[in-house]
Structures are given as structure tokens and as C-alpha cells.
Write a protein that binds this DNA or RNA. Structure first.
Lengths: 343, 343
DNA sequence: ATAAAATTTTTACTCGCGTAAAAAATATGC
DNA sequence: GCATATTTTTTACGCGAGTAAAAATTTTAT
């Protein structure tokens, strides 16, 4: 890091005593040059910090070394967690990752895709909004850019889908709740943004039937991504109306459950397994904070790292395969039950 | 959106019946061309969706229309919230924003700056890690790239700093707690990652002295960004050891408080103002979930939107001013007390 | 209608790098 | 030590746009 500033690869090649094409070759693949010349370049890199102009580099490449990551709502720690794992894997593989949040709105999702298209990414990992997504826009995007969907599936779009196995989530919680106490009532939003929510409801009903029990589904109104508040208000009215036929509430996701816990607390109702508890509450996702709710939340955990690894691995396969896979695969990863104090 | 694909500006100029330089002029400033030609271009844009290749556009520009946003830990909803507000303002102003998280580590922070430097952003909004930051690296970065710091200050770095007024946060909580019950003990990490934590401790001690009260500071061990768990374990031992001399705990930040609430719950200690409560707990930040803790957390709220607005506004001034301001300013925005059930 | 002003076109060069082809230099095997 | 294989250099063009200067055109004002 000394001497005068290097302005471009030409100058850098000069100070390292090589020709520009050789240096260019090095930056595209350090192992493609003889080890002695590689050493000379790396020695020069120590003295003059030079990096190829990424705009000039990307101008010619049909595909860049960029990978786009789109999540529906980054302020939701579940997605922050997903994004973090994925980002790390991409960076380790030598890609630059570009993280975009749709902030819960389809306008923003559309803008994100638009903006990504302009970046000519090698591939995109997309967790769509779900119900609110502009399907035709996503379809158009997937035609142009190698895309792998994760977290929430949209039938037939993208080269593959990697997500959690909602049936596995729900079966584990339902089984556990049934064998350890009263049968669970299912608590959800009536019009969930995310398609996983529907899958979970269906899985709940099936699981209850398998247990020979009557399913009870409590659906509450509410729009947007303020799930905690929706859960809190919904729980207040459901409890007041006596909608929960048993003492056990299985929430569609942890954020709703956090709202339910708040409502119970506000009503002076104790939650947990012990005597003196009015309700047991369990849920799905293993939200980063569910360890710290009062009481700590029993939930079915995403295998965050497995989802990230499979998603990234699949995207790399797509990229190596020229942007397309022979047939679209759907990978569903099982959940792991985490029993805590709430149920 | 019909007809054949346009490959570059030359072709687009042809189909709109104009010359390339004129079209180029339009894209740099739509108002710089005669309104009739502007209309012709925009009509063509409807038919053939064309966008100038951003790599070619940025290759020559010394500065791009990119703005970098760096936060220390995106999985922390407080930063997710900050990032969201800032991102929106930048996008609305016609910039592309690039959001990067340092994931709590200085290596990643260094990499982020490195990666941003390569993107030649018009400006960067940086919330540094704080204690863990590589100061000399940040200094070097700020020399090269117009940078405004936010959230946590590093003496003298960047063109300006915009953050929250920690004294205002703490004065409001301390005043409120003192006038409504026993005086608060201050609960914090011994070696906080974030410099705001130190300012808050100091402000606490001064506030207590102003009230003529003996300050009690309980500092707990713990490293990293798992504040909730650090708070939980720390609270367990502090309570067991009788470190809290009064029944009121003022936490340095909400995430610690969430841990304290969990510990109290686990010990069967009721938190709140009412009779039968063992502790009152209050805190700072207004974490998006503090509304939903049990009990809901009394806290001093960041003015998220004001921080975002001032930061972005300041950065724009820096940019318009050629990357530097005459003298570095520090803007501290006051907090707003939010009284909930916990204290 | 005409001169002056504003805008657009033409032409040509630049930016920094990828990349292809042929020539030159260097390394490797026997 | 020599033929062969490998690597590097030389040369040259392309990518997609910004931009400058001069020429041509259109608009506006008088």
C-alpha cells in the first residue's frame, strides 16, 4: 500500500512487469497463470492496492458474479436470519450478494426484481411475498434470470424451490401437544400473506383427523406484516368469545404466538404446562426471540442453515448448468421440535 | 413492451427516431431535452422496455448514483428498522441503495467498506460496530468516500454524525422512574459493543446525582450480539446475588431488558408497577417487539424516521458539496418516553 | 420573414477491461 | 540439447455509454 495510485489494469500490469492480458487472466482465475507470475502479481498487489473496476469488468460479461437475494420483509428476524445464512454462503463462494427486502409490498417486490434484472446477476434467490406477489412479473423475471425460490413456493416458478416442510412442522407440534395434554386449536390469520400459512392449516386439519380429533381453526382478521399486533388483538377477541375449545393454542407462526402471549398476559392468564395455567401455546418457526418470550415458546424450528445450504447449492447448480435445470424440483426440509415452557 | 429486444442505446435511439447523444442526454436529465423529443423518447420507452446498461453508465462516472448503507447487525430489528427508513428515502431521491450488514464482526465491516469502495458510491451511511471497529480502516474509507455516520459515533470520523441523544433517553427514563417509585439500578454489559452504552451509563450516573441519589450500576459479562441471552443470564446472577439495591431496573437497551424479563419470569418474579410485583423494568430504544413483551416494556423510543431523515439529508448535503463539509457536525435527536406496563 | 437562440445530429474519442489470434518466450520431457 | 508443450506478449477489436465540438436543424422573438 504505498507508491502512487494505480489507475487501471494497464498501469498495474506495468508495475508488476507483466502484460495486461496476463493480469486480466489472473483476476478471472488466479490459478490460470503460472505460479511464478501469480506470485509476482500478488507481490505487486501488496504494494499497490489495485482492484479491477467492477463496472468495466461487468460490462462485457453476460453474467456477473452477483447474486441477488430477495426477502419479503427484512424487519422480520426470521428473514433476517435466512438472509444472513445465505449471504455468507454466497460470499464464501466468491460472489457478491445483493440483499433486497420487499418490505411487505408487491410494488417494492416488483421494483426489486426490476433493479436486479439491471444488475445481470448470475442468479437470484427469491423468497416471494406470496399471495401479494405479482405472479406474471415474477414469471417474466424467472425467464430472464436464473432464479431459485425459497421459503415460500409459487407453483412452477423458478428453477427450483427450497423450503420447510410445513407438514413436518405441524405434525410434530400437533403430535407433541396431543400426547402431552389437550388437543390444540389452530390460530391463524384469515388471509395470510404467506402460502405456508395455508399449508400449515391444512396439515393441522389432517393431523387432527389422524388423531381422530375434531380440528378447531380460529382465523382472525388483519392485514399486513404486523403479525404480533394481529395476534394480540385476535387472541383477545377469540378468548373473549370462547373460540378456543381446548386449553391449547397452536399458532401458525411464532410472531402470531408472541401476540397471543401478550394478550394472555394482559388478561392475567397464565400460559404453560403447569397447574394454574389457562392455556398452552405453541407455534412454528423458532423465531430468534421465541427463546425469550414469557414463557419461552414451544415451537417447531426451521433448519435455517440447511435451507440456506440447499438453496445456495441448488442455485449454483442452476448457474453451472447455464441457467436452467431439466426439471423443477421442490425440496422440503423437516422441522425440529423445540419444547420450551409455553406448552 | 412489445417488438424485438433493444440491445443498446444506439438501437433505442433508432427506434425512437433520435440520435444517441440526445437519448443519452435524456437519461441523464429528462428535462434537458425539448419536451417534444422527451415525449418521443417516453413513447418509445412504453413500447420497447430499454434501460441503459448500468455498468457502462457507471464505468466513466467518478461517482455513481449508489448509496451504501452499512449497519452493524441487521438481524437486530432496531437496525432493520433504521435501514428500512433510510433505504426508502434514498430510493425516493433517485439513488440505488446497497444495504450491508457487518454481522457483528469487524472483519465483515472491513469487507463491507472494501466492497463499497469498489462500487464508487456517491455516499455512504455508516453505522459502525463501535468498539470492535477498525478505526484506521474506517478513517481511510472516509477519506475516499463521502460518509456520514449514524447511530454510533466515532470521534472525528465521517463528515457528520447523526444519532440519538443518549442523555435525553436516560434522563427521561430516570426522571420518570424516580418520580413514580424507587430509584432505578442501571443494568448493562460490562464491555458493550456499542459506544452508546457507555454514554448511557454516564448519563445515568449524572441523572442520579442530579436527583441526589446513589447510582447503582450492575455490569454483566458477555460478548457478542446475543444481548437477550446475556441479559437473561446476567439478570439471573444479579438477582441471586442481590445486586439490585432497589426494585427498579433500568436496562441499557431493550434487548437486554427482554433477557431480564425472561429471567424474572423464569424465577417467578412478577414485573410491573402494581402490587405483587418484584421489579419494575425499563429500558431504551423502543425495539419493535417491546410492545409485545410480558409485560409490555416501558422504554425511551428512538425517533427512527427523524434519524433517517436527518442522516439522509446530511449525506445529500455532503454529496452536493463535493464530498466534504466545512466542519463536522454532530446531531443528537431526543428520545420520547413510552410508558407501558413494565415500569 | 428573418435573425438569433436553442436544440439536435454528426463525428469521433474516451473509459477500463474481456478476449481472440498470432508471435514470442519459457518450461518440460526424453 | 532438442523438440514439444505451455505460458506470456503483442496487437487489435468490442462492449455500451459519456461527452466534446462542429454542423445542421428547429424554435422563438422581433
Amino acid at each position: 500500500m504505498s507508491e502512487q495510485k494505480i489507475r487501471n489494469m494497464e498501469e498495474f500490469a506495468a508495475v508488476s512487469g507483466l502484460s495486461r492480458p496476463t493480469v486480466s487472466k489472473y483476476f478471472n482465475d488466479p490459478d490460470s497463470v503460472r505460479s511464478t507470475t501469480r506470485a509476482r502479481i500478488e507481490a505487486a498487489l501488496e504494494r499497490y492496492d489495485f482492484r479491477p473496476n467492477i463496472y468495466a469488468v461487468n460490462q462485457n460479461r453476460r453474467l456477473t458474479k452477483n447474486i441477488g437475494i430477495v426477502v419479503p420483509y427484512l424487519a422480520d428476524p426470521v428473514f433476517a436470519e435466512h438472509a444472513r445464512s445465505i449471504e455468507k454462503l454466497c460470499n464464501d463462494a466468491g460472489f457478491r450478494s445483493i440483499l433486497l427486502s420487499s418490505h411487505g409490498g408487491s410494488d417494492q417486490e416488483r421494483e426489486n426484481l426490476d433493479s436486479l434484472r439491471a444488475l445481470k446477476p448470475a442468479g437470484v434467490l427469491l423468497a416471494p411475498l406470496g399471495r401479494a406477489s405479482d405472479r406474471s412479473e415474477i414469471e417474466r423475471f424467472c425467464r430472464d434470470v436464473p432464479t431459485v425460490l425459497f421459503d415460500s413456493n409459487i407453483e412452477g416458478m423458478g428453477e427450483a424451490f427450497i423450503g420447510s416442510d410445513n407438514a413436518s412442522f405441524v405434525n410434530q407440534t400437533v403430535d407433541y401437544l396431543c400426547r402431552s395434554g389437550e388437543t390444540p386449536c389452530f390460530f391463524e390469520m384469515r388471509t395470510p400473506a404467506n402460502p405456508n400459512a395455508n399449508k400449515r392449516r391444512i396439515a393441522y386439519i389432517q393431523a387432527m383427523e389422524r388423531h381422530g380429533q375434531e380440528p378447531v381453526v380460529v382465523s382472525v382478521e388483519g392485514d399486513g406484516w404486523g403479525f404480533e399486533e394481529i395476534g394480540r388483538q385476535g387472541a383477545h377477541s377469540a378468548i373473549a368469545a370462547g373460540d378456543f375449545k381446548t386449553d391449547t393454542i397452536l399458532c401458525s407462526n411464532d410472531r402470531l404466538a408472541i401476540g397471543v402471549l401478550a394478550a394472555c398476559y394482559e388478561r392475567g392468564l397464565r400460559v404453560g404446562r403447569g397447574p394454574g395455567c389457562a392455556f398452552r401455546v405453541a407455534s412454528h418457526d423458532d423465531h430468534p426471540f421465541s427463546r425469550f418470550t414469557c414463557p419461552a415458546l414451544t415451537t417447531a424450528a426451521h433448519n435455517y442453515s440447511a435451507v440456506a445450504e440447499r438453496s445456495v447449492k441448488t442455485l449454483f447448480e442452476v448457474i453451472e448448468n447455464g441457467g436452467h435445470l431439466r426439471n423443477r424440483t421442490e425440496t422440503l426440509l423437516p422441522a425440529q421440535l423445540v419444547v420450551r415452557a409455553s406448552a
